[in-house]
């Protein structure tokens, strides 16, 4: 099973519920703004704690309120590409990329820095500071950083948001390549119908 998500989350006054299972290589999570799509990703990454439920990713139980399982974020091994990039501002691009790679067990790494630089076309950015990258560059570096941490599954939050059409197209092609070439299930949050229909093997609607 790629993903199995059943949870109830409390966010202030609001309550978010999700219940789906998917065996697709790429599962898309769609729904209106405020439906709690990002919250579901945060819960899977271990950054939010559901009131109750069960979360499973890449065949591994991450959270199960009945059995008292709640893995720490670092133990979940999520490759989380945040919508806002979240590159570390005090490190060069190269150090950002190395951050997760250094912490991943060598035997579990499935891509090298050279490969990922090639794939994402960021070889020229390696010695730059992250504070003067463009939006598209930030997105690509964030994806590279997530891949290098040897994740067991990927969480992509609106990866093409705020990119121009050409950049978005290039990134979609890249996500397709990752989807087809690598053995990691992907959960994608998107508001673009066309994007979702092109990429996803299964689409989950959130109300």
């Amino acid at each position: 099973m790629s993903f199995e998500v059943r949870l109830t989350l409390r966010l202030g006054e609001a309550e978010v519920r999700a219940d789906f299972a998917s065996d697709a290589r790429l599962t898309a999570l769609v729904g209106p703004s405020g439906a709690g799509k990002t919250s579901v990703l945060n819960a899977i990454a271990g950054l939010l704690h559901p009131r109750e439920g069960r979360l499973l990713a890449a065949g591994r139980v991450l959270f199960d309120s009945e059995r008292g399982i709640d893995l720490s974020p670092e133990a979940r091994r999520a490759g989380y590409v945040f919508q806002d990039g979240r590159l570390f501002p005090h490190m060069s691009v190269r150090k950002n990329l190395a951050y997760g790679e250094r912490l991943a067990p060598p035997a579990e790494r499935w891509i090298t820095c050279a490969e990922v630089s090639d794939l994402l076309d960021i070889g020229d950015l390696l010695d730059r500071r992250t504070t003067n990258l463009s939006g598209g560059e930030v997105r690509r570096v964030a994806i590279a950083r997530a891949l290098l941490a040897a994740p067991r599954f990927l969480l992509l939050d609106e990866p093409t948001a705020s990119l121009d059409a050409a950049r978005a197209e290039a990134l979609l092609g890249l996500i397709e390549r990752i989807r087809d070439a690598m053995e990691v299930p992907i959960l994608l949050v998107s508001h673009s119908r066309a994007e979702v229909e092109r990429l996803a093997g299964q689409i989950v609607e959130m109300a």
Binding site: A45, G46, L47, S72, P73, E74, R76, R77, A78, Y80, F82, D84, R86, F88, P89, Y99, G100, L103, A104, R145, A146, A149
Partner: peptide
């Protein structure tokens, strides 16, 4: 959020 990113990276 940067701390969260670091945690998710291991």
């Amino acid at each position: 959020k940067l701390v969260e990113a670091a945690r998710s990276l291991g």
